[in-house]
Design a protein around this nucleic acid. Sequence first.
DNA 1: GCCCGATGCGATCGCCGTACACATCATGGG
DNA 2: CCCATGATGTGTACGGCGATCGCATCGGGC
Lengths: 191, 191
Amino acid sequence: MPPPSDSYHHGDLRAACLRAARELLEEDGSGALSLRAVARRAGVSPTAPYRHYADRDALVSAVAAEGYRELAGSLAAAHPAPSTPDDLVDVAVAYVRFALDHPALFRAMFAEPCDPGSAERVEATAVLSAYVDTLVRKTFPGGNREGLPTAVWALVHGLAFLHLDGKLDASSPEKVAEQVGTTVRAAVGFR
Amino acid sequence: MPPPSDSYHHGDLRAACLRAARELLEEDGSGALSLRAVARRAGVSPTAPYRHYADRDALVSAVAAEGYRELAGSLAAAHPAPSTPDDLVDVAVAYVRFALDHPALFRAMFAEPCDPGSAERVEATAVLSAYVDTLVRKTFPGGNREGLPTAVWALVHGLAFLHLDGKLDASSPEKVAEQVGTTVRAAVGFR
DNA sequence: GCCCGATGCGATCGCCGTACACATCATGGG
DNA sequence: CCCATGATGTGTACGGCGATCGCATCGGGC
């Protein structure tokens, strides 16, 4: 991967587009994520990105896949080997905080119909799903309760969206953490 | 409200725009929801809708508010006075089915940053929230468990999104109902 | 040294959101 | 009865965007 030169060819336009797309998303929301804006930011002609992304959807799918990987990383960072309900709460808080820290990215990951054609995207979500599964299995070892992993994921996912939409008090990280904690404990029947 | 005439004025363009927007959303997804398309479908000039909706966001906010009211109606129709965990499951299934029956509308309701300026929208969501609160309070009368209403809403909301995104098997209504049922029962600690 | 595939450019088309000036209607005060 | 006035829809225009197509340029393999 040659360093970006000032020559005719960019050098690594694919990665540059991804980076630019991420920046636009964080700075100005999903409305600002256009192929042309990405091209401008990468210092390249408006249509050059089409060489690397078939259309706009392909670009946002790539961004979303990166988001899935980052989310998985954030969860793992929240607790390396969760095995108690308290650990689970920590992971849940990390999930919601990720959504609140990267709202436009999170919405790009879940708000648009998932293009089933993007293998990268499907794989990244599968990794995430598997993580949740093992997490719940370790946390509730006796529990062969049928829908528990799904329940936990849905609960946390729903909490993230409700916070994002302003339906719950997300004014401070502490309040969010507290709300997520009590809600998860209440729901999961932890007693 | 005069019947729509073929004269210069439409008669009830505001309602016609809403109807057209709903149809476009259901037929071709949110990508097809443009003011111009709405105007075409209403048989009116491309800029006429601006008389009634300040900008595109105002139109989708109006559609979303209508969606909130319809969702509340669907929940109420699922069970007029829910008071047992089984009733709650019925309502949860209705919630998820609404999302799957109207995917683009549901996404319009939740996927975009909620414009806090739309009083109609805020009010409609407040109604929905209150409905969930009383539902949970009736279903678990002893439970002054702090976060239970929030937990239930988040759980069901998350289930809806996971089904929408293809993370859960939504191939048949029966499977969805079964999945939602077992998940809600598992999560809510109903035993 | 040269050639070919990969990469980026430029022009172009059609659609969209939005702003503005103008046309048309219908209603009520004189 | 009539016309002024405000509400409603029209026409025109501008800029941005996604997407396609043919051309320009580079760089590695023969």
